[in-house]
Design a protein around this nucleic acid. Structure first.
Lengths: 157, 157
DNA sequence: AATTTACCACTTTCTCCCACTTGTTGAAAA
DNA sequence: TTTTCAACAAGTGGGAGAAAGTGGTAAATT
């Protein structure tokens, strides 16, 4: 699977179902358009992974020895609500209510795809997050990327 | 049996019976949907295993040399409270009261499935556990997963 | 006999499936 | 060249059936 990309604004219908934009589906191989795994993200947002991507991650996690306390803690926090979701015949997904509440999603959501995941935000939280520290983006970029040697890297400034 | 996954919020009825969510049952082969073994977890929580999984674990434990004092102690404590439970006709299980008390489960429970088990938490304890040290997750992840060679490992940060 | 457990019946809620509406694209004819 | 219609895809809504939730009674165990 290539890296995902795109930002999509979606409305939930009255039953809380979320349409997966066709533009996003097209980026995924046919076999990976049906099943996803959603869990809580670090910010007030959810992360959704195509099932295969999730399996790559979790197969390693599941090999940890659970008699070790630290491993138990890690496994639990790593999963953090991870739940399988499936798109219905009309290309919609129904997210568990507990996760919707966590992310504060009501009517409007933003799907923000990058690398191997799709982040799901409430529109309000997304705008807030992107607004905060918007001024300092240049400074942040320097902090994060400034020390990486510039081998054939594309200039994105 | 594939790895289990999912977080489910369940209410107990007034008789203390716990509904097994259908989403969880679907993950188990038909033959393993009826009988489970529950015992005390290391945290303030219970672990429930499909019977076959329990047998695997139990056979490992039974290989320990019981002439060793430490082993005897471990085996006793590990089996302490282990109880076979069966799903009733309406898809519910009745957990022994002593175990419910141990886990502090009253009305609301969280079923948290991963690898080969289903952890049963009181909602309050679960929230507390997930909240504690949430900031240090990155450090924990490094400690636990940091030494594993990074072969095609997916990024989950 | 009292308490616990198993079994059965019913209501409400939710989920999945199907059918319909809307929108878009492309081709053909005026 | 423009307009119209057809065909398909995208998006919306509703309804049937399954699952969740509730309660009660009979049976069994102590």
């Amino acid at each position: 699977m290539g890296a995902l990309i795109g930002e999509y604004e979606c409305k939930l219908d009255e039953k809380g179902r979320l349409m997966v934009p066709s533009g996003l589906k097209k980026q995924l191989p046919a076999k990976e358009q049906k099943k996803f795994v959603v869990n809580r993200g670090f910010e007030k947002q959810l992360n959704m992974y195509p099932q295969k991507e999730w399996e790559k991650i979790s197969s390693q996690i599941n090999e940890l020895n659970l008699f070790v306390k630290q491993n138990r803690e890690f496994v639990r926090k790593f999963n953090n609500g991870a739940t399988e979701v499936e798109v219905d015949g009309s290309g919609r997904i129904l997210l568990p209510k507990t996760l919707m509440q966590y992310a504060g999603i009501d009517k409007e959501a933003i799907l923000f795809a990058h690398s191997n995941r799709i982040e799901i935000w409430s529109k309000a939280e997304y705008d807030k997050f992107m607004k905060e520290g918007a001024d300092d983006f240049a400074a942040l970029a320097e902090q994060v990327m400034g020390n990486i040697p510039n081998k054939g890297k594309a200039d994105v400034s």
